[in-house]
Design a protein around this nucleic acid. Structure first.
Length: 473
RNA sequence: GCCCCCAUCGUCUAGCGGUCCAGGACGCCGCCCUCUCACGGCGGAAACAGGGGUUCGAGUCCCCUUGGGGGUGCCA
């Protein structure tokens, strides 16, 4: 009989759910679902200064959007401070911890001397073995763990293997602050233990903490959970992910038009693999996910691949699903309200019908919406804004020049137009398609690029417009 | 500084001692399909960081170097 797996995702609500956190949550979720266990959610709001309600909402919203759910109500670490302190005092009584009266100045000095002497900056244990009677009367104190000084602590990690830390490198860290509040180190251990967490799946940056936490578990006589420290996600340049890169909240990805399935699929392949498989359904992910296949090296975030995946999911979504996805996205877009209104009318049906043709070339939902904008564009278009939206500045100029040439032909045919367009494109060293597409589509009566009418209208080419319409039948 | 981790195409990765003159995917480049773009199809360039070992045999195991990253708080 094996204990059912309990994982947890424990974000600190000091910002949004960033991409790394999202993947950590995903891995925890997949592992729990794979094993038939549970995934719990714990909000680590111990740092009252930096924790905000908005951040909590953003995190829950982000998880939900990604399709990650959790079992039971979320635990709020801040509400468990009493329990944390209780354990700290237990440790104090059992001799596993001690009171330290060193002041901030002393600590700073300690660090500086250590640095100057080329030693690692660690607490020197000055109160470790001192008699409590020596304590300054009524002075504030912190509680430090009486960490073993000899030997080593081994973190048995499901991803990293056994990682050994010499105990002499780990000092007597603080577990209870002078104001009686617990530090992260203590709080995590107590919470994970109380919540019955069996597997701690989190970022690589916590590996050293795992050693310290192991010490707490040991001092308490508790079972150490299975660790799984997953490699971090880096920016495209290999440096730690920052705002500069993709360390945006997941809501930013939503706003950029990425579908949750696509982001999830992208994320799961960052650091984890199942042979050569690239596309996973949710069921497949759950079925195949395992800690053993998680890689050990950091991965770089690559927008191009995400985009490709997104395009894949847009193409393979059926029209109704796509429509629903767009509906869900609209509230999160700046111009969404307007569009929502539009799509409540007949434009909705037009959009649905245009979708099969449109979705073939869209990389994001934003692309999709923009390429469909001819449906609800107000006519005649305001020259500068709307036209620019449809064609960029250069293309617009080229189109005008092209229209000039076409007008110069007395009675042009599709073939002639083709020739003129080709010649022009060659002279202007243009990608043929960019300029020619709208015209050619119009000539053949294709509607894949309806903007041509709008553009010609905008350019005031009434004559050209009439001809094209004629030609197109 | 000290401790820890990592290291296969530009990127994500497969590879768990021989079947690897290293496979897939994205991106890139050609060609095909085609009224354009896209989709799709076909093909191509592109990697085991370097050096020592171990072994009959190393991308795969060990060590060193180099290069990345993380940690080193009364933050989490």
């Amino acid at each position: 009989m094996t204990t059912p797996v309990v994982t947890r995702f424990a974000p600190s609500p000091t910002g949004f759910l960033h991409i790394g956190g999202a993947r950590t949550a995903l891995f925890n979720w997949l592992y729990a679902r794979h094993t038939g266990g549970r995934m719990l959610l714990r909000i680590e709001d111990t740092d009252r200064e930096r924790s905000t309600e908005e951040a909590i909402a953003a995190i829950l919203d982000g998880l939900t959007w990604l399709g990650i759910d959790w079992d039971d109500a979320p635990t709020f670490q801040s509400q468990r401070a009493g329990r944390h302190a209780e354990i700290a005092h237990e440790l104090l009584e059992s001799g596993g911890a001690y009171r330290c009266y060193a002041t901030a100045e002393e600590l700073a000095e300690m660090r500086e001397t250590a640095k100057a002497e080329g030693r690692p900056p660690r607490y020197d244990g000055r109160w470790r073995d001192r008699d409590p009677s020596e304590a300054p009367e009524g002075a504030p104190y912190v509680v430090r763990l009486k960490a073993p000084q000899e030997g080593s602590t081994v973190v048995r990690d499901a991803v990293q293997g056994d990682v050994t830390f010499p105990n002499k490198d780990l000092d007597d860290f603080v577990i209870l602050r002078s104001d009686g509040s617990p530090t992260y180190m203590l709080a995590v251990v107590v919470d994970d233990h109380d919540m019955g967490v069996t597997h701690v799946v989190r970022g690589d940056d916590h590996l050293t903490n795992a050693a310290r936490q192991t010490m707490i578990y040991t001092a308490l006589g508790w079972d150490v959970p299975t660790w799984a420290h997953i490699p971090l996600i880096h920016g495209p340049d290999g440096a730690k992910l920052s705002k500069r890169h993709g360390a945006l909240g997941v809501e930013a990805y939503r706003a950029m038009g990425y579908m949750p399935v696509a982001l999830r699929n992208y994320l799961v392949r960052l650091g984890w693999s199942h042979g050569d498989t690239e596309i996973f359904s949710t069921e497949e992910m759950i079925e195949w996910f395992d800690l053993a296949q998680i890689g050990r090296s950091a991965a770089r975030f690559d927008f191009a691949k995400l985009e490709n995946l997104n395009g894949h999911y847009i193409r393979s979504s059926d029209d109704d699903t796509l429509l629903e996805t767009i509906d869900a996205l609209l509230p999160h877009l700046e111009t969404g309200a307007e569009l929502q209104e539009t799509l409540a009318g007949p434009a909705r049906e037009q959009l649905r019908q245009a979708l099969p043709g449109l979705k073939e070339r869209a990389k994001t939902l934003i692309d999709l919406i923009e390429s469909a904008s001819y449906i609800w564009a107000t006519r005649p278009l305001a020259p500068d804004e709307k036209a620019a939206k449809i064609l960029d500045g250069d293309a617009r100029g080229h189109l005008a020049a092209l229209a000039d040439r076409l007008d110069a032909l007395a009675d042009w045919t599709a073939a002639e137009t083709e020739a003129v367009v080709r010649a022009y494109a060659e002279e202007a060293e243009l990608k043929l398609g960019k300029v020619a597409q709208p015209l050619r589509c119009a000539l053949t009566g294709r509607t894949t690029s309806p903007p041509v009418f709008d553009v010609l209208e905008t350019l005031g080419r009434e004559e050209s417009l009439a001809r094209i319409r004629d030609q197109a039948g």
